[in-house]
Computed example of a mutant assay.
Amino acid sequence: MIARTVLGGCLASLLATAALANDLPDCVDPQSQMEMTYCAGVDYEKADADLNAIWPDIVAAAKANDEYVADMARDRGVPTTLEALRTAQRAWIKFRDAQCEYEAYEVFGGTMQPMVGSLCLARLTRERIQVLSSALQTR
């Protein structure tokens, strides 16, 4: 939570500064810590957008699987594929946020803390995309 708050504040001030300058940082080769932090945030936002883009396909695959197993699952008192997916995703989000907050503590209080948190968020989000995408391919 702290990393998110710090990241949010940092990104807001970067955007305000960039808006004043009418020039966003160069994320191909960021030079300052402020630019690197901004670019790490942009990288996470892209990874999150990519995850959100494949989510409907993941849900559709879960629903399709439920056409075959839903009755059996209910008879056995276990969640449907869709219910299990949603539970897993909620748990993964909590894990991701906690893990990235922990990783950012390596540089606690420093100017790198928000950047480290964003880099972690992007990395774990891309890993999640791979896991979910591979589940789609096996169906």
Rank of each mutant, 00 (worst) to 15 (best):
M1H: 06
I2Q: 12
T5I: 14
L7P: 01
G9S: 09
L11W: 12
A16C: 04
A16G: 07
A16P: 03
A21F: 08
L24Y: 15
L24K: 12
L24W: 13
P25V: 02
P25H: 07
D26S: 02
D29V: 08
Q31I: 08
Q33S: 08
M34R: 15
M36Q: 10
Y38E: 00
C39M: 03
Y44R: 05
Y44C: 01
E45I: 07
K46I: 15
K46G: 04
L51Y: 13
N52D: 12
A53M: 10
I54T: 04
W55G: 01
P56G: 00
P56Q: 05
I58N: 02
I58D: 01
A60N: 09
A62R: 11
A62Q: 05
N65T: 09
D66Y: 08
D66T: 00
A73G: 02
R74K: 14
D75C: 01
D75K: 08
R76P: 00
G77C: 08
V78L: 09
T80C: 00
T81D: 01
L82V: 02
E83C: 10
L85H: 01
L85G: 00
T87V: 07
A88W: 03
R90Q: 13
R90K: 13
I93M: 11
D97V: 07
C100D: 11
Y102C: 02
A104L: 03
Y105N: 08
E106D: 14
V107P: 02
V107Y: 13
F108V: 08
G110V: 07
G110E: 09
G110W: 04
T111G: 09
M112K: 10
Q113C: 02
Q113L: 04
M115A: 15
S118F: 07
L119H: 06
L121D: 13
A122K: 12
R123C: 05
T125I: 01
R126K: 15
E127L: 02
R128E: 04
I129S: 04
I129N: 05
S133R: 11
S133P: 00
A135G: 02
A135E: 03
Q137P: 00
T138A: 07
R139T: 04
